[in-house]
């Protein structure tokens, strides 16, 4: 689909807004519907759209396969790491109260970090799955 001008231009216009919306969903998850999972999906869909329009090779140059795998693992690592940090700081595993002086701030910080971990994993996994399915077609 690399020669379709309307699709290319449309995607170029849309992708920044999709990414922005993903971040909005991520950071507004504390106040409205949304959170790391949905934000990760939206973030991934922006790159999948890019890969569909501009081709898999271009997308892999923007977002290398190794980086995507790394993201998938990094998110779990962030999540579990928050738990370990709370352990070290004297609380239970994943008890965010100890992360800051006030328990509420600790909870907010912990949730922010944990949601970031979810976002990273979901984003990495979805793009990696798409690469796996789409890259298969090239082999044939």
């Amino acid at each position: 689909m690399e020669d379709r001008l309307i699709l290319r231009v449309g995607a170029k216009i849309l992708i920044p807004f999709i990414l922005m919306f993903a971040l909005y969903v991520q950071f507004h998850g504390d106040y409205g519907p949304g959170g790391g999972f949905q934000a990760g999906l939206i973030f991934a869909s922006a790159f999948i759209l890019y890969a569909l329009i501009f081709g898999l090779d271009t997308a892999k140059r923007v977002l290398p396969l190794g980086f995507v795998w790394f993201c998938g693992a990094l998110g779990v690592w962030i999540f579990a790491g928050v738990g370990v940090v709370t352990l070290v700081m004297g609380g239970e595993f994943l008890n965010y109260d100890v992360l800051a002086h006030e328990p509420e701030h600790g909870q907010e910080l912990g949730i922010l970090l944990v949601e970031l971990g979810v976002l990273t994993t979901v984003f990495g996994v979805m793009v990696a799955m798409f690469y796996a399915f789409a890259g298969r077609r090239q082999v044939r």
Binding site: G29, D30, Y31, G32, P33, G35, P103, E104, H105, Q107, E108, I111, E115
Partner: peptide
């Protein structure tokens, strides 16, 4: 306890 309005997230 959590300090954020969205109960689902907390």
């Amino acid at each position: 306890e959590i300090g954020i309005p969205n109960v689902v997230t907390s």
